[in-house]
Amino acid sequence: MTRLAGRIGRFAWEIALPIVVLSYWWLATADGDNPFFPPASRVLEAFWSNWFDERFVSDFLPSMARLGASYLLAVGIGVGAGLLLRLWRPLGEIVEPLISFLRSIPSAALLPFAVLLFGIGTNMQVFLITFVCVWPILLNTMDGVADTDPTMLDTARAFRIGHRRRLTRVVLMAAAPRIASGMRVSLSVAVVVMLISEMFASTNGIGYVTIQAQRTFAFADMWSGILMLGLLGYLLNLLFVRAERLVLSWYYASKGR
């Protein structure tokens, strides 16, 4: 009973808190005497007309396409390379110092190089986002594969499971929870890098619209961009956690969570 009450309470708070914050925002900006903080009604208007009209196609979709393509690439490369580096130990040991160097380069520092390499445009952005997102997935895959229970591997060997099935049905599955936590980190990183690349080297996209609005003193539009980016980050994470729960339901159930 108290657990139920606690859950209801928490749920109510999750609803109430945004309402409180939004109301405060509405009231505090209603008189519109601070140009940096335009009235909430104008921001919401701008939000609607920006993101659900022509900019949906010209800016929102390109951003999402870059994000999606880069993220999928990063997952593919990260999981593939992580597996390879663990299954072929000597290579892993040779490459490991290089990995720790590359992954510590801040994404913004790579931007000038990426522009040199690809020019301004989608290729450069996909390169940059992918490059930064690969590392958490790669390292988590390596750890997950290395931590595979030896009894599980012995069992697979004892029953003469073929190499491919051993890899896809045993090793990858055992590493899946670790891979998923790497993917979750990468997802939020992806949004940040997308934003940076669009703000400083792009001709469209959510980040581009936001920074252009700021430069032209269109503060309502600027806020509409910030709001969109915040929502996007929040919703993507929510979606990811839901999907993870579904796909790894055996993992959470076996851990009693």
């Binding site: 229970d149 009894t151 012995d154 069992t155 004892a158 049905r169 599955m173 055996w250 993992y251 076996s254």
Partner: peptide, 15 residues
Amino acid sequence: LGIVFQDYSRSLYPW
């Protein structure tokens, strides 16, 4: 040759 290991919780695949 079929093997039954001591530690069933790690020999069966939870997924």
